[in-house]
Design a protein around this nucleic acid. Structure first.
Lengths: 260, 260
DNA sequence: TGCGCCTAATGGTCGGACCAGTTTGGTCGG
DNA sequence: CCGACCAAACTGGTCCGACCATTAGGCGCA
């Protein structure tokens, strides 16, 4: 981020972005607080409202600001989850080779996170994780048609079993990472997973008749958690991610090497 | 991703964002390709140019689009580095407790990444890493006096010693992670580091007369890499991150417990 | 006192105008 | 014939003013 001094001409909007950033990091406005109206801000910084709005839009998509129609523009809580929401785009757009890279990162994070969770999770966490595990088994067992608890989140007309199981799977892992007490870690890990990818994994394993293996992985992880055994938890998580990674490799090889 | 059906009134701009996203994921426009002019797009989607520009701005900050003044709007290569550029905001804005969480994540990633680098780095990588190490020593040695606290965020005219050393430090670690060949990993790790934080770390260590320890950490890591010893590399990286984490803990305790 | 309406404030959208770079094609000179 | 130069036509960047949609808060009525 070089300074604007020198012959470089910085676009007006970008300058506005940095001014607002400065207002925040300078303590002029704190998390949750409201900043001046768009009209005031634009006048104050000497730019048009259009440019100011684009600046605000940029900071909004970054998760730093939040606009409420008719009410004003507010600074978010600036929690990691707010700032890392944009992360999901990676999992959304990535394909082929990049997905392998994402899984490689997960292979570094999830074992460590799961081990940490084994040491830190309290009774409530464990109970919640156990419940999600049971729910996952339920949706996986009933195969299709049945109560789809959180299917709304997936939107569209969910095709039942696979999506639900995938969603429960996602929730299971998210609950584990969340129980480490590290919100940043949780936000990053969430960003590395996506419903659509999880659904692909489950559909692929079901096709190959390997859902039992996935189920066993989860059981193993859960047991390690309740036993408060970090080493076992790390190993179980590693095995699980490796299994998914291996599946992705074969799947990519089969569907053509249009990687990258 | 929820559909706009139902009573929900989706803001026009957001709809435009999703339309463009659909154009990309639908293959209508591929990475690197140029999409219609703002005027055409706004007419095509039935929105004003202002709204279309805000939509483009949003996708630009997400790293999906890139607009070139006078030339047109282009889809980026959609490489992880493009999508994860927004990540740096986390390290920029985070304070107190969140910084500790970030370091905890780095403690999971960097050892694994450094170990991987020890196995994968080729001669050129090692040469580059070595050069950065020497450069770091050089800038650190000149030690132009005048230690001052108070981190001006993003210095105007670089302040010489501390900033340069911090920058070289950053480059050193980035080069290591980059030599794993995993661009996604590199992008994430880069996002977890920031120049301003690094500068604080170096300033703090210099004050305490502990720059020698940092230097020794780097030497140890470098030696492990040239020796192609993953275990040693993992250990050295862990020690290094732990040292920084410990410093941050004391620094936070000293400057008041206004965590979070 | 309490509820409901109404007004003012604020973000959201629109259309047009003009400025600032880029591209492109033609023209001129060698 | 070829290359450099220049100007006109795009294209994104900025600004302005108006109006719509939603919210918040005050005011009056029961």
């Amino acid at each position: 981020m070089p300074s604007d001094s020198g012959g470089e001409r910085t676009p007006v909007t970008q300058r506005a972005v940095e001014r607002i950033k400065a207002m925040i990091s300078g303590g002029e406005v704190g998390p949750g607080e409201r900043l001046p109206t768009e009209r005031d801000l634009s006048a104050q910084l000497g730019v048009s409202r259009s440019s100011m709005r684009e600046a605000i839009r940029a900071l909004t998509t970054l998760g730093v600001l939040e606009s409420r129609h008719g009410a004003g523009v507010y600074v978010t809580a600036l929690r990691p989850a707010d700032l890392l929401e944009t992360f999901s785009v990676l999992a959304e757009v990535s394909q082929g080779h990049t997905l392998l890279e994402v899984l490689q990162v997960r292979r570094m994070l999830e074992p460590a996170a799961t081990a940490l969770a084994a040491a830190r999770a309290d009774a409530r966490d464990l109970e919640r994780i156990g419940a999600l595990l049971e729910h996952m088994d339920g949706t996986a067992a009933m195969d299709c048609g049945g109560l789809r608890a959180g299917a709304r989140l997936v939107g569209e007309g969910s095709d039942g079993g696979v999506l639900d199981t995938a969603g429960a799977d996602l929730g299971f892992h998210q609950a584990i990472v969340a129980s480490t007490g590290n919100a940043t870690l949780a936000a990053i890990n969430d960003g590395l997973s996506s419903r659509t990818f999880n659904a692909r994994v489950w559909a692929g394993h079901r096709e190959a008749g390997l859902t039992a293996e996935l189920h066993e992985d989860h059981e193993r992880i859960h047991e390690a958690l309740v036993a408060r055994d970090p080493d076992a938890a790390r190993a179980a998580a590693t095995v699980h991610v490796l299994r998914v990674e291996r599946w992705l490799r074969t799947d990519l090889a089969r569907s053509g090497g249009s990687g990258d």
